[in-house]
Computed example of a mutant assay.
Amino acid sequence: MNLFKSMYINAARLKLLWPSIGIALILLFNALFTPGFFHIRLQDGHLFGSLIDILNRGTPILIISLGMTLVIAKEGIDISVGSVLAIAASMAAFLLQKQFPFIVALIAGLGIGVLCGLWNGLLVAKLKIQPMIATLILLTVGRGIAQLISGGKIITISNPAYRFVGGGYWLGLPFAVILAAAVLILLYAITRKTAFGLFLEAVGANRVSSEFAGIHSTRIMITVYVICGFCAALAGIIVSSNITGADSNNAGLWFELDAILAVVIGGTSMRGGRFYLGGTVLGALFIQTLTTTIYTLGVPSESVMVVKAVVIIFISLIQSDVLRDIFSGMIRKKTGKKVLVNEAAA
């Protein structure tokens, strides 16, 4: 019994515990009530099934969430990622419609995402504008920019190379999933194998102290917003490629909320400091698994937002200091051991 209690306390300290439990519960529900949910078939060299659909459909949110993780680790926020997605998709589709080469359209779409991220970074780091307000500007104006590029219409895409980005398969897997894995590996290498990750955590925890320590906080802040803009643009390329069209009105709508939720579910605190890319991956998969399950059960699409709202409330309650104190006290009472408040609710 003591061994079980010790294992419980250690597990509670893991940031990946809660999203892992959430995904496991949803998968268990599907195993019991959704016939064929775990069935995967190979057809024409491609893998098909609900689990593959979760990976494929969740790719745009996952990529945006990875970029958002770095911004939140800096104690910032970027609510413009949905608009940046629409701008990048519209730009790439517009150039393809004008018969520009695929590589030019791709670079332009990703480049405009980088410029949007640079704009947000300069507003926050240089002009000292509060992150919510700074990114609200592009959230509002971005849709208008995307509509100006597309002329207010849905631009259809027929370029086979572009369509492969979001709709193609490689080694049996959707190519978009492979792109998401590449982004994850790249960001992990940057943040965990270089000093950048340490500097980012230092700036997020205490910007003033990090500057006294010799860290150029302004560069760090601009860099994370640029990375977030690039990730949003790449997600826009994938989304527009998958539907073979760019919809400036609806592309990326509410994606910023899903991205923030995925980051928070993954254990990264909105207060900045330490961040968890692996937790963000689980958070994004949790959201997409939940969404796919709701659609599979035939629940109306408008109910998806209600379920997500319940999840947000639950996550917010978990992060409450008051509930952390109560939870810590319950563990101490049952185990007779002292547990740090933050560790108990991690």
Results as ranks from 00 to 15, higher is better:
residue 2 N to M: 14
residue 5 K to S: 12
residue 7 M to D: 12
residue 11 A to T: 15
residue 12 A to D: 05
residue 18 W to T: 14
residue 18 W to D: 02
residue 19 P to N: 12
residue 22 G to V: 09
residue 23 I to P: 10
residue 23 I to A: 09
residue 24 A to E: 09
residue 27 L to E: 11
residue 33 F to N: 12
residue 36 G to R: 13
residue 41 R to M: 12
residue 42 L to S: 15
residue 43 Q to R: 12
residue 43 Q to D: 10
residue 44 D to W: 10
residue 45 G to L: 10
residue 46 H to F: 11
residue 50 S to P: 00
residue 51 L to A: 06
residue 51 L to C: 01
residue 62 L to K: 05
residue 69 T to K: 11
residue 69 T to S: 13
residue 73 A to H: 03
residue 75 E to T: 06
residue 76 G to S: 08
residue 81 V to Y: 03
residue 81 V to R: 03
residue 83 S to T: 09
residue 85 L to Q: 13
residue 85 L to W: 04
residue 87 I to H: 12
residue 88 A to V: 04
residue 90 S to A: 15
residue 91 M to K: 04
residue 92 A to C: 03
residue 93 A to H: 05
residue 93 A to T: 02
residue 94 F to G: 03
residue 95 L to K: 08
residue 97 Q to R: 03
residue 97 Q to W: 03
residue 97 Q to S: 15
residue 97 Q to L: 14
residue 99 Q to K: 13
residue 104 V to W: 06
residue 104 V to A: 13
residue 108 A to K: 07
residue 111 G to I: 03
residue 111 G to D: 05
residue 112 I to C: 13
residue 112 I to G: 09
residue 112 I to L: 14
residue 114 V to M: 14
residue 119 W to S: 10
residue 120 N to I: 06
residue 120 N to D: 12
residue 123 L to M: 14
residue 123 L to P: 10
residue 123 L to H: 06
residue 126 K to P: 06
residue 127 L to K: 11
residue 129 I to E: 07
residue 130 Q to M: 05
residue 130 Q to S: 04
residue 130 Q to A: 11
residue 135 T to R: 01
residue 136 L to I: 13
residue 142 G to K: 09
residue 143 R to W: 10
residue 144 G to K: 06
residue 145 I to S: 12
residue 146 A to S: 14
residue 147 Q to W: 09
residue 148 L to C: 03
residue 152 G to Y: 14
residue 153 K to P: 01
residue 154 I to V: 15
residue 156 T to Q: 14
residue 158 S to G: 10
residue 161 A to D: 13
residue 167 G to D: 10
residue 168 G to C: 02
residue 172 G to M: 07
residue 175 F to R: 00
residue 178 I to L: 15
residue 181 A to E: 00
residue 183 V to T: 02
residue 184 L to N: 01
residue 187 L to A: 00
residue 190 I to K: 03
residue 191 T to W: 04
residue 195 A to L: 09
residue 197 G to R: 02
residue 200 L to F: 05
residue 200 L to R: 05
residue 203 V to L: 07
residue 205 A to K: 08
residue 207 R to Q: 08
residue 207 R to I: 05
residue 214 G to F: 10
residue 214 G to S: 08
residue 217 S to M: 08
residue 220 I to P: 01
residue 220 I to R: 10
residue 221 M to V: 10
residue 223 T to A: 14
residue 224 V to E: 01
residue 231 C to T: 15
residue 238 I to Y: 01
residue 244 T to A: 15
residue 245 G to F: 06
residue 249 N to G: 08
residue 256 E to W: 04
residue 261 L to D: 02
residue 262 A to E: 03
residue 267 G to L: 10
residue 269 S to I: 08
residue 273 G to Y: 08
residue 280 T to F: 07
residue 283 G to F: 05
residue 285 L to P: 05
residue 285 L to C: 05
residue 286 F to P: 02
residue 286 F to H: 04
residue 288 Q to F: 03
residue 289 T to Y: 01
residue 290 L to M: 14
residue 292 T to R: 07
residue 294 I to L: 14
residue 296 T to G: 09
residue 302 E to T: 06
residue 310 V to A: 15
residue 312 I to C: 01
residue 317 L to R: 11
residue 318 I to N: 11
residue 321 D to F: 09
residue 323 L to G: 07
residue 330 M to S: 11
residue 331 I to S: 06
residue 333 K to H: 13
residue 334 K to H: 13
residue 343 E to N: 12
residue 346 A to G: 04
